[in-house]
Nucleic acid binder design. Sequence first.
DNA 1: GGCGAAATGGACGATTTCGTCCAGTTTATG
DNA 2: CATAAACTGGACGAAATCGTCCATTTCGCC
Lengths: 219, 219
Amino acid sequence: MADRGSRKDSPRLTARGAATRDRIVATTADLMFRQGVAATTLDQVVDACGISKSQLYHYFPDKEALIAEVIAMRKHRMVSTQKPQLDQVRSMRDLERWRDWLVTSRRERGEPYRCPIGSLANEVAGRYDDARRSLAGIFDTWQGLLADGLARMRESGELDPGTDPRELAVAVIAALQGGYLLAETMQDERPLMVALDMALDHVKAHVRAPVANLTQSDN
Amino acid sequence: MADRGSRKDSPRLTARGAATRDRIVATTADLMFRQGVAATTLDQVVDACGISKSQLYHYFPDKEALIAEVIAMRKHRMVSTQKPQLDQVRSMRDLERWRDWLVTSRRERGEPYRCPIGSLANEVAGRYDDARRSLAGIFDTWQGLLADGLARMRESGELDPGTDPRELAVAVIAALQGGYLLAETMQDERPLMVALDMALDHVKAHVRAPVANLTQSDN
DNA sequence: GGCGAAATGGACGATTTCGTCCAGTTTATG
DNA sequence: CATAAACTGGACGAAATCGTCCATTTCGCC
């Protein structure tokens, strides 16, 4: 398993130190999620964490390194929430459950219509190339988790043998991201749902045609 | 026609003044497109325009007003480039032409994989609510142009009578935006093309089913 | 307990950035 | 051509922001 570099660069790290460090990253991630990377000040981080400036520079050489850690945390968090859901995908029904879970879990937490990864990517992609690459890796991993599920659907005969799970996964994640952007901008969750419905219809279009009963109305 | 306030707030405006003002907006728009809103400094704008600080504050009360003008310009530019294309949409073939034009025109200009409106929206949506509303209006207009084309396709009988052009347009624009985001992050235009192909397949799924030959494979 | 390293607090400096001010120049118009 | 208003240049101030420094406290370990 590839070490993210969180623990390696600081030779020795006390339990308290590790806790503080993690708290800094988590708090910064939250601030950057809500107001953006550039708009998040190190002084804000210091205040929100209840620490002093020297801590920040004790654990991170500069702001860019802190951003890198935030991204690493986002990857870890994405995998730990998405993997359990996507690993269970074996049918269209499971995929619909995943879609519903995406929408309802966001709604329940009262979070803004925004993807923690997508919004990050949009802001830093043209500015910090290392960050951009890391975020590309996150998207790649995400698409991989989804593609694995689609591959299972193909192997089990639900999807057409000619289906490319990877390409399908790219399309679905793109729809998800675009749906988030429109939903946030218009302050309305319907664009997100519409986009996800399109994506799932697109997957459904690759369902192996049943021998009879072609006229069923789906959705 | 709703005046955007470009000419109204300055009672008299010399030809030279108007030219300078427009140049400021255009240059700022370009800088913000390439490096983001927060990362674009007023001093950078001053340097890039070859003007001095007082001009900026002669024409615009503050940075937020300048951002507002940039957004207004983006709307104008979007309409002037998208409307000629989308007004001609009367069939799936036209829609495919629009898709190809989107991809190739970006490629020819050597621009980054980024939507001038989407990237703007992602950055300011959670920060300046006025800007967010304006951008929502742009998306709404854009979707309207596309929906009109889809409505023509429905009226001419190419699309199913039960089709909702507006909802379809939302889905297509979402795919476009998500495709842009993935393309920029992964530095690869394929996600954009995959997303647009999905969107067009989704429209195609609403093509009125021919009376016979139901088992045709689309795509 | 004692020693060295890690962890912490908070002031401080350098730079950037937004916005102001005022003196000088150009333009429109009688 | 004279005058007022639009236009312009560039220095300047105030605040924000990144990053540094050093004294002090806490922790790990013998």
